[in-house]
Design a protein around this nucleic acid. Structure first.
Lengths: 393, 393
DNA sequence: CTGTTAGCGCATTCAC
DNA sequence: GTGAATGCGCTAACAG
């Protein structure tokens, strides 16, 4: 390792001079500058981020916890996230829980030890709200509610569910079947800490609201609907079985909505059984990753705005980081730290939205429709989508 | 930040005592130990990895450079890699070049500054061998040759290509079409540094050997073959166009081999045009990711052993790390470092394979066959696969 | 504008 | 067994 001292000696200057050239902060005479720079090149000097991170107390790196990177959904999101963070000068450290035997707790621990500036939580957690609020580090949740004061970002699944239902309703569907994760998750409110100020029956896992909105809209239109559970969303076989059972159990089904992969398999299964899409059967994908393009037909989909979500997450993240930074700037006595309540300093000078809203509702990113060949189209639907700003590509 | 000094004060002991407890190295009296441990819990002490990394001069983290994480192939490989490294106590830092505007050079720089213990190069590089050998850091290449002394790991594409050709030959195919990347890459030997001891026309990008082996085997069997280029392997549209042109340009084609995604699209296109798979047309996928399972039929595929590849990469990586470690243990004069030739110390005591072999050939991981419904099967083929150890799942 | 000094948090000699 | 010193590489205050 060649350090600044080596450069300084080689250039015949002092340490701080080198530091100033490297950081470009203060003013150094041009002669000094070139001397130092040539010395750096000659010695092949590489600044050690570790040391400067240690000093500054921040690493410019955020840890992103996700279930698996193998699923196109998360792969797409991660790519967007990386880009969004990179644009804000932040690096990304991926932590996928399902690809590993260790749970998310291990990761949080690891991220704390490595002084990550923030943690993005996009995986299932077994922890209570207490845990997350006690982390004492910037946390931003994706598509889930982790506790008061923890920003959460995700698609507006209520709107998405309504959109899906409306499309089916307007197309004249009579019997809709939805595929999705375990229905029990709809009621996982029990996981929420006891002292939480939960005010209604909302789940801590926002995506389920999509189902609820979907079904309510369908009910209002008097359309029959059924639900088929996919236990393990990581297992391809289960998807296939689900796809098969839809058509076996409900021969009169004329509309299906399912996550991308499941939707793709439904398309296959339907084609194999002689259905003519979209006339005898409509299929709508929920997510809108590239998978919808390799299923034979272009599957119409309710699309998550990955880039928008990522941008918002990144924005919230830097907000949180700056917040914590100013908060910690006034050196506290270490022995009192753990007992301190959350500092409720005046946030007037910053754009942070009030805690109740930030924690409970979070930032809702609107969902769009990606036009495909697996659903019916008519004037009413086009009108609906104009209002909902569809996505043509 | 609560540090060891705080813990020491709280527990009424000295710094090193705390250090010993944390690291579990020396022996401390049980009484001290519990005192310290309770103090750690009470203060919610979190060891700072940054500091210890700075001290130890290693981060236990490797940087993995890949083109994109959105492609199932790389997503699968990355997941395997993460697992493999994690099992060896190493963290993984993902760097995807295509998802970002900055090239791989930026990443290498970044990885150096962060003192990554090693770099895994799995993306296209515009640099010459000189660059990579001058990095002065452990580098392991995936599916490419980066220079003498740089281990490279990848599937045995020659064997894979031969396997594919044999399957078609034994099944009685008459006209085979292959889809793949730009043919020009076959001759990118020009990229190889001038002083390299390249002994024959081998490309620095090993996967192309698959095509060569494939075509040679076909030639030997007297089977007609054509090749269709896909310019941009990241663009879905191009895949579709390629899939279409196969069937349009070669109406008499009876066997196709293509990368997963392209193969999936070929299946769609073929089914749409009324082909009966595998009888009137065989389709073979090259890679074997989950994509082969969502194309309607289970596509027979030449499978990359992702876990095996990852394991081997991880093994080679720790080898390299240890090698560099012992190499740097004897403090060198910084001013001479950059001019030093690669140290050719006796490697007798370690398992490292000789440089020529390590650099040129690299570690070849055998490819298997994943049995599917899109190719013909007969006794001869089964016999072939028994020798090649097929994979049923 | 440049040089000196004192840590960031931790680990490893050494004396005690 | 335990405690006090020194340094990993860099930055920020100072004083020159």
């Amino acid at each position: 390792m060649v350090g600044m001292r080596d450069v300084a000696r080689e250039a015949g200057v002092s340490l701080s001079t080198v530091s100033l050239v490297v950081n470009g902060n203060g003013y150094v005479s041009d002669e000094m500058r070139v001397r130092v720079e040539s010395a750096m090149k000659g010695l092949n000097y590489i600044p050690n981020e570790l040391a400067r991170n240690l000093f500054h107390g921040r690493t410019n790196t955020v840890g992103v916890i996700m279930p698996t990177i193998q699923h196109p959904f998360f792969a797409t999101l991660l790519a967007s996230l990386q880009k969004a963070f990179y644009g804000r000068g932040l690096h990304t450290m991926l932590c996928s829980t399902a690809d590993m035997e260790s749970g998310e707790e291990q990761y949080v621990d690891m991220l704390q030890r490595h002084m990550m500036d923030a943690i993005i939580m996009g995986a299932h957690t077994t922890h209570s709200q207490n845990y997350w609020t006690s982390i004492r580090r910037p946390v931003v949740a994706f598509d889930r509610y982790l506790g008061s004061g923890i920003p959460s970002v995700g698609s507006d699944h209520e709107q998405g569910g309504e959109l899906a239902a409306m499309m089916f309703a307007l197309s004249g569907a009579r019997h809709v079947v939805a595929l999705g994760g375990p229905r029990s998750r709809f009621y996982d409110l029990s996981r929420v800490g006891s002292e939480s100020q939960s005010r209604d029956g909302q789940s801590s896992f926002p995506p389920v609201r999509y189902q609820i909105a979907f079904e309510e809209t369908l009910d209002a239109a008097g359309i029959r609907h059924d639900y088929i559970e996919i236990d393990n969303l990581a297992n391809m076989r289960e998807f296939e079985n689900a796809a098969r059972s839809v058509l076996e159990r409900f021969p009169d089904v004329d509309a299906i909505v399912a996550p991308d992969l499941a939707a793709a398999l439904c398309v296959q299964e339907a084609l194999r059984r002689g259905f003519v899409l979209p006339n005898s059967l409509q299929i709508l994908a929920y997510d809108g990753t590239f998978v919808t393009d390799i299923a034979g037909l272009r599957i119409t989909s309710i699309l998550q705005g990955f880039d928008s979500i990522a941008e918002r997450i990144a924005t919230r993240t830097v907000e949180q980081i700056e917040r914590y930074q100013t908060q910690n700037s006034g050196r506290q006595d270490a022995s009192r730290r753990s007992a301190d309540p959350i500092i409720k300093s005046s946030d007037n000078d910053t754009e942070i939205i009030p805690d109740e809203d930030a924690g409970r509702i979070g930032d809702l990113i609107p969902m769009r429709v990606k036009i495909g060949e697996t659903t019916l189209w008519n004037d009413a639907i086009h009108e609906l989508l104009d209002g909902a700003r569809p996505q043509t590509d």
